[in-house]
Computed example of a mutant assay.
Amino acid sequence: MKSVQKAPRDTQAMSGIDQARTLYYDFFAGCFLYPLLEGRAGLLQEQIGLFKSSPLEDVVAQNFERLHEELEANGVENLLKEYDDIFMIPMKGEMVLPYVSHYKEGRLNGEILVDIRQTLKALPIRRNEKIFKETEDHLGYLFLMMRYCVEGKAFVVEEQEIFNTYISPVIKTFMDEVKEHSLANHYKDIIQILEGFMAFEREYLK
Protein backbone atom coordinates (compact mmCIF):
# COMPACT_ATOMS: atom_id res chain seq x y z
CA MET A 1 0.00 0.00 0.00
CA LYS A 2 1.08 3.52 -0.58
CA SER A 3 1.98 5.16 2.72
CA VAL A 4 -0.46 7.77 3.99
CA GLN A 5 -0.48 10.24 6.82
CA LYS A 6 -3.65 9.81 8.81
CA ALA A 7 -5.44 13.12 9.30
CA PRO A 8 -8.14 13.90 11.89
CA ARG A 9 -11.60 12.92 10.64
CA ASP A 10 -13.45 15.91 9.19
CA THR A 11 -17.09 15.93 10.32
CA GLN A 12 -18.17 18.20 7.44
CA ALA A 13 -16.58 16.51 4.45
CA MET A 14 -14.74 13.29 3.77
CA SER A 15 -11.03 13.39 3.03
CA GLY A 16 -9.81 11.99 -0.26
CA ILE A 17 -8.66 8.87 1.59
CA ASP A 18 -12.06 8.30 3.16
CA GLN A 19 -13.78 8.85 -0.19
CA ALA A 20 -11.56 6.10 -1.63
CA ARG A 21 -12.25 3.85 1.37
CA THR A 22 -16.00 4.32 0.88
CA LEU A 23 -15.69 3.26 -2.76
CA TYR A 24 -13.57 0.22 -1.89
CA TYR A 25 -15.94 -0.98 0.81
CA ASP A 26 -18.89 -0.55 -1.52
CA PHE A 27 -17.01 -2.46 -4.23
CA PHE A 28 -16.30 -5.38 -1.90
CA ALA A 29 -19.85 -5.39 -0.55
CA GLY A 30 -21.03 -5.62 -4.15
CA CYS A 31 -18.71 -8.53 -4.85
CA PHE A 32 -19.55 -10.56 -1.75
CA LEU A 33 -23.30 -9.92 -1.37
CA TYR A 34 -25.20 -11.82 -4.04
CA PRO A 35 -28.27 -9.50 -4.08
CA LEU A 36 -26.01 -6.54 -4.83
CA LEU A 37 -23.81 -8.37 -7.35
CA GLU A 38 -26.79 -9.33 -9.55
CA GLY A 39 -27.40 -5.77 -10.75
CA ARG A 40 -23.94 -4.25 -10.54
CA ALA A 41 -22.23 -4.85 -13.88
CA GLY A 42 -22.19 -1.16 -14.81
CA LEU A 43 -21.34 0.08 -11.33
CA LEU A 44 -18.48 -2.39 -10.90
CA GLN A 45 -16.99 -1.27 -14.22
CA GLU A 46 -17.28 2.36 -13.12
CA GLN A 47 -15.66 1.63 -9.76
CA ILE A 48 -12.83 -0.36 -11.30
CA GLY A 49 -12.20 2.50 -13.71
CA LEU A 50 -11.80 4.86 -10.76
CA PHE A 51 -9.53 2.43 -8.90
CA LYS A 52 -7.33 1.97 -11.97
CA SER A 53 -6.83 5.71 -12.30
CA SER A 54 -5.80 6.13 -8.67
CA PRO A 55 -5.08 2.77 -7.03
CA LEU A 56 -4.30 2.47 -3.34
CA GLU A 57 -1.83 -0.24 -4.33
CA ASP A 58 0.02 -0.31 -7.64
CA VAL A 59 0.57 -4.08 -7.79
CA VAL A 60 -3.14 -4.86 -8.26
CA ALA A 61 -3.36 -3.08 -11.63
CA GLN A 62 -3.44 -6.41 -13.47
CA ASN A 63 -6.25 -7.69 -11.23
CA PHE A 64 -8.33 -4.61 -12.01
CA GLU A 65 -7.59 -4.98 -15.72
CA ARG A 66 -8.71 -8.61 -15.83
CA LEU A 67 -11.91 -7.83 -13.95
CA HIS A 68 -12.64 -4.88 -16.20
CA GLU A 69 -12.20 -7.03 -19.32
CA GLU A 70 -14.46 -9.74 -17.86
CA LEU A 71 -17.22 -7.27 -17.01
CA GLU A 72 -16.98 -5.69 -20.46
CA ALA A 73 -17.26 -9.06 -22.17
CA ASN A 74 -19.79 -10.88 -19.99
CA GLY A 75 -21.22 -8.52 -17.39
CA VAL A 76 -21.57 -10.28 -14.04
CA GLU A 77 -22.75 -13.61 -15.51
CA ASN A 78 -19.53 -15.52 -14.80
CA LEU A 79 -19.02 -13.78 -11.45
CA LEU A 80 -22.49 -14.91 -10.35
CA LYS A 81 -21.74 -18.51 -11.35
CA GLU A 82 -18.42 -18.38 -9.57
CA TYR A 83 -20.11 -16.91 -6.49
CA ASP A 84 -22.51 -19.87 -6.49
CA ASP A 85 -19.65 -22.36 -6.84
CA ILE A 86 -17.60 -20.86 -4.02
CA PHE A 87 -20.09 -19.54 -1.48
CA MET A 88 -23.46 -21.18 -2.09
CA ILE A 89 -23.34 -24.54 -3.87
CA PRO A 90 -20.66 -26.91 -2.55
CA MET A 91 -18.74 -28.54 -5.38
CA LYS A 92 -16.30 -31.36 -4.65
CA GLY A 93 -16.99 -30.76 -0.95
CA GLU A 94 -15.60 -27.22 -1.17
CA MET A 95 -17.57 -24.31 0.23
CA VAL A 96 -16.40 -21.04 1.73
CA LEU A 97 -18.65 -19.67 4.47
CA PRO A 98 -18.04 -15.91 4.76
CA TYR A 99 -19.48 -15.57 8.26
CA VAL A 100 -17.61 -14.31 11.32
CA SER A 101 -19.44 -16.86 13.50
CA HIS A 102 -18.11 -19.68 11.34
CA TYR A 103 -14.51 -18.56 11.76
CA LYS A 104 -14.73 -17.56 15.42
CA GLU A 105 -16.99 -20.31 16.78
CA GLY A 106 -17.07 -23.03 14.14
CA ARG A 107 -20.81 -22.64 13.56
CA LEU A 108 -23.29 -20.25 11.99
CA ASN A 109 -25.40 -17.81 14.01
CA GLY A 110 -22.95 -17.93 16.90
CA GLU A 111 -22.87 -15.76 19.97
CA ILE A 112 -20.68 -13.21 18.20
CA LEU A 113 -23.63 -12.42 15.94
CA VAL A 114 -25.40 -10.96 18.99
CA ASP A 115 -22.38 -8.75 19.68
CA ILE A 116 -22.28 -7.57 16.08
CA ARG A 117 -25.97 -6.71 16.12
CA GLN A 118 -25.44 -4.70 19.28
CA THR A 119 -22.62 -2.73 17.64
CA LEU A 120 -24.71 -2.08 14.53
CA LYS A 121 -27.59 -0.68 16.60
CA ALA A 122 -25.75 2.65 16.70
CA LEU A 123 -26.05 2.97 12.90
CA PRO A 124 -29.20 4.58 11.42
CA ILE A 125 -29.77 1.68 9.02
CA ARG A 126 -31.10 -1.83 9.42
CA ARG A 127 -30.79 -5.00 7.38
CA ASN A 128 -33.65 -5.42 4.93
CA GLU A 129 -34.43 -9.10 5.40
CA LYS A 130 -36.40 -9.22 2.14
CA ILE A 131 -33.23 -8.31 0.23
CA PHE A 132 -30.43 -9.68 2.41
CA LYS A 133 -30.82 -13.27 3.55
CA GLU A 134 -27.30 -13.12 4.99
CA THR A 135 -27.03 -12.40 8.70
CA GLU A 136 -25.15 -9.38 10.04
CA ASP A 137 -21.95 -11.36 10.62
CA HIS A 138 -21.58 -12.00 6.88
CA LEU A 139 -18.34 -10.34 5.74
CA GLY A 140 -20.03 -8.78 2.72
CA TYR A 141 -22.61 -7.19 4.98
CA LEU A 142 -19.91 -5.91 7.32
CA PHE A 143 -18.13 -4.34 4.33
CA LEU A 144 -21.39 -2.55 3.56
CA MET A 145 -21.64 -1.33 7.16
CA MET A 146 -18.05 -0.08 7.00
CA ARG A 147 -19.00 1.92 3.93
CA TYR A 148 -21.83 3.58 5.87
CA CYS A 149 -19.59 4.25 8.85
CA VAL A 150 -16.92 5.95 6.74
CA GLU A 151 -19.49 7.81 4.67
CA GLY A 152 -21.48 8.91 7.73
CA LYS A 153 -18.38 10.40 9.40
CA ALA A 154 -20.03 10.21 12.85
CA PHE A 155 -19.40 6.52 13.54
CA VAL A 156 -15.65 6.33 14.10
CA VAL A 157 -15.99 4.14 17.24
CA GLU A 158 -18.29 1.67 15.47
CA GLU A 159 -16.06 1.72 12.39
CA GLN A 160 -13.01 0.72 14.42
CA GLU A 161 -14.92 -1.95 16.34
CA ILE A 162 -16.40 -3.53 13.22
CA PHE A 163 -13.00 -3.70 11.56
CA ASN A 164 -10.69 -4.50 14.48
CA THR A 165 -12.99 -6.86 16.40
CA TYR A 166 -14.93 -8.63 13.66
CA ILE A 167 -13.33 -8.29 10.23
CA SER A 168 -9.58 -8.19 10.84
CA PRO A 169 -9.27 -11.35 13.02
CA VAL A 170 -10.91 -13.62 10.41
CA ILE A 171 -10.28 -12.01 7.04
CA LYS A 172 -6.95 -13.71 6.28
CA THR A 173 -8.42 -17.20 6.74
CA PHE A 174 -11.38 -16.24 4.56
CA MET A 175 -9.13 -14.88 1.82
CA ASP A 176 -6.88 -17.94 1.92
CA GLU A 177 -9.88 -20.26 1.56
CA VAL A 178 -11.13 -18.40 -1.50
CA LYS A 179 -7.66 -18.42 -3.10
CA GLU A 180 -7.37 -22.16 -2.51
CA HIS A 181 -10.84 -22.99 -3.89
CA SER A 182 -10.46 -25.05 -7.05
CA LEU A 183 -13.23 -23.15 -8.87
CA ALA A 184 -12.07 -19.64 -7.97
CA ASN A 185 -10.93 -17.60 -10.95
CA HIS A 186 -12.13 -14.01 -11.04
CA TYR A 187 -12.55 -14.10 -7.27
CA LYS A 188 -8.82 -14.66 -6.95
CA ASP A 189 -8.37 -11.23 -8.55
CA ILE A 190 -10.94 -9.76 -6.16
CA ILE A 191 -9.20 -11.38 -3.19
CA GLN A 192 -5.80 -10.02 -4.20
CA ILE A 193 -7.30 -6.51 -4.31
CA LEU A 194 -8.97 -7.17 -0.95
CA GLU A 195 -5.67 -8.31 0.59
CA GLY A 196 -4.00 -5.04 -0.28
CA PHE A 197 -6.93 -3.00 0.98
CA MET A 198 -7.10 -4.91 4.27
CA ALA A 199 -3.39 -4.23 4.85
CA PHE A 200 -4.05 -0.53 4.27
CA GLU A 201 -7.03 -0.57 6.67
CA ARG A 202 -5.03 -2.20 9.46
CA GLU A 203 -2.55 0.66 9.33
CA TYR A 204 -5.18 3.34 8.90
CA LEU A 205 -7.40 2.17 11.75
CA LYS A 206 -4.67 1.57 14.32
Rank of each mutant, 00 (worst) to 15 (best):
L113V: 06
M175D: 05
N109D: 11
D115G: 04
L144R: 05
G110S: 04
G152T: 09
L108R: 07
M146N: 10
T135W: 02
E161K: 10
R126Q: 15
V150A: 12
E129P: 00
D176A: 15
D176G: 02
E161V: 04
M95R: 13
K104E: 12
P124W: 05
K179H: 11
V157Y: 10
T173P: 00
E136C: 02
T119I: 09
M175F: 04
A154E: 15
L97D: 00
S101T: 08
E180H: 04
V114W: 03
T135E: 11
L123G: 10
H138W: 10
F143I: 04
D176M: 12
K172M: 05
M175E: 15
K172D: 15
V150C: 14
S168Q: 09
K133Y: 15
I167E: 10
E151C: 03
A122I: 11
L120K: 03
N164L: 13
Y166Q: 01
V170Y: 13
D176L: 14
Y166S: 04
K153I: 03
D137Q: 07
E161W: 00
V150R: 12
Y99P: 09
I167W: 09
K133P: 00
I131L: 14
V170T: 05
R117P: 01
F155M: 03
F143T: 01
L108K: 05
G110K: 01
L144I: 03
Y103K: 05
L113S: 08
L144W: 12
K104A: 13
P98K: 04
D176H: 14
V157H: 11
M145V: 01
L123M: 12
E151I: 00
E158T: 07
E159N: 08
E159Q: 12
L97G: 00
V156W: 12
E105Y: 02
K104H: 10
K153P: 00
L108Y: 06
F132Y: 15
N128Y: 00
G106A: 02
I116A: 10
R126T: 14
E180M: 07
V150D: 14
T173Y: 01
Y103I: 02
R117Y: 08
S168I: 00
A154C: 02
F143V: 01
N164F: 00
F163C: 03
P98Q: 09
T165F: 06
